[in-house]
Deep mutational scan, measured.
Amino acid sequence: MEQGTVKWFNAEKGFGFIERENGDDVFVHFSAIQGDGFKSLDEGQAVTFDVEEGQRGPQAANVQKA
């Protein structure tokens, strides 16, 4: 798993971006967030995640709040 920081996340649209430790950004969809209840992330929040190849390039999977 990688570690990163939430760059931004739009809860209304259900997606955002995580900044990886290497400085690259990776797309995150709310469906990739682990846990119960409303799935959202806060700007600046530390997270761990896997990276999978999506239809439009790399995207975060198995996102967990650190």
Rank of each mutant, 00 (worst) to 15 (best):
A61Q: 10
M1L: 12
N22M: 11
N22E: 11
T5M: 10
K65M: 10
D36F: 12
D25M: 13
F49M: 04
N10M: 06
R20C: 06
H29Q: 03
D42M: 14
G4P: 01
I18F: 03
F27D: 00
I18L: 09
E21Y: 12
V63E: 00
D50T: 14
V28S: 01
E19T: 15
V51Y: 06
V28A: 03
G16E: 00
D50P: 00
V6T: 06
E52A: 10
G44Q: 05
Q45P: 01
E21V: 14
W8F: 08
A11L: 10
T5C: 10
G37S: 07
W8E: 02
G35E: 10
G4K: 01
A61F: 13
N10W: 12
E12P: 08
R20Q: 07
Q3G: 08
Q34S: 11
T5A: 07
E21G: 11
Q55R: 15
G44N: 07
G14I: 02
G37P: 06
K39M: 07
A61L: 12
G16H: 00
R20A: 06
A32G: 08
D36N: 12
Q55D: 12
G57A: 05
Q3V: 13
L41E: 02
V6Q: 00
G35M: 13
E53P: 12
A60L: 02
Q45N: 07
N62V: 04
T5I: 13
K7N: 03
V47I: 06
T5W: 15
E53R: 11
H29K: 03
A61G: 08
I33Y: 03
S40E: 07
E12A: 15
N10T: 07
T5P: 02
T48R: 11
G54W: 06
E21Q: 13
G57Q: 04
V26H: 01
L41V: 05
Q45C: 08
K39S: 06
D24C: 10
A61D: 04
G14M: 03
S40Q: 09
P58D: 05
F15R: 02
E2I: 13
E2G: 08
Q45M: 12
W8Q: 03
A66P: 08
A32L: 03
E19V: 15
A46G: 09
I18K: 00
D50Y: 14
A11H: 14
I33M: 05
G57T: 04
Q34G: 08
K13A: 08
W8I: 04
G57S: 06
E21D: 13
G16N: 00
F38M: 07
V6N: 01
T5F: 13
A61S: 10
P58E: 06
F38Q: 08
M1H: 13
S31P: 03
Q45V: 09
T48Y: 12
K65F: 10
E43P: 15
V63N: 00
E12T: 15
R56N: 11
F27C: 03
E43S: 14
E52L: 12
E53K: 11
F17H: 03
Q45I: 09
D25V: 12
A66S: 13
Q34D: 08
N62W: 06
I18G: 00
V26W: 02
G54S: 11
D24G: 12
V26T: 04
L41C: 03
D25N: 10
T48I: 11
F17T: 03
Q64R: 13
A46T: 12
G35Q: 10
F30M: 06
G44C: 08
V26Q: 02
F38T: 07
N22A: 11
G14S: 03
F30T: 04
G54D: 06
A46F: 12
G44I: 02
N22Q: 11
K39E: 05
K39Q: 09
V28D: 00
N10D: 09
L41Y: 03
S31N: 07
D50I: 14
F17W: 08
D24L: 13
F9D: 00
I18S: 00
T5G: 03
E21K: 15
V28F: 14
G54H: 08
E53C: 10
G44V: 03
P58N: 07
E21F: 12
V28C: 06
D50E: 13
G37C: 08
K65I: 14
V51W: 06
R20I: 07
F38Y: 11
Q3S: 13
V51S: 04
D36Q: 13
D24N: 14
Q55G: 09
D36P: 12
G54R: 09
G14Y: 02
A32H: 06
K7L: 06
K7F: 03
K65N: 09
E2F: 15
N10E: 04
K13Y: 09
E19Y: 15
D42E: 13
F15I: 08
G44H: 08
E52R: 10
F27G: 01
E43D: 10
D24K: 15
D25I: 11
E53A: 11
A61I: 13
I18R: 00
K7R: 12
D50K: 12
L41D: 02
A32F: 05
F9S: 02
G44D: 05
G37Q: 06
W8K: 04
A61P: 02
E52N: 09
N22D: 11
Q59E: 09
F49H: 01
A61V: 14
E2T: 11
V47R: 00
V63I: 05
Q59A: 07
V26N: 01
N62A: 05
F30P: 01
Q55C: 09
V63W: 00
V47L: 04
L41N: 02
Q34C: 06
D50N: 14
Q34V: 14
R20Y: 07
H29P: 03
K7I: 06
E2Y: 15
M1K: 15
G37L: 06
Q64H: 12
A32V: 06
V63D: 01
R56C: 09
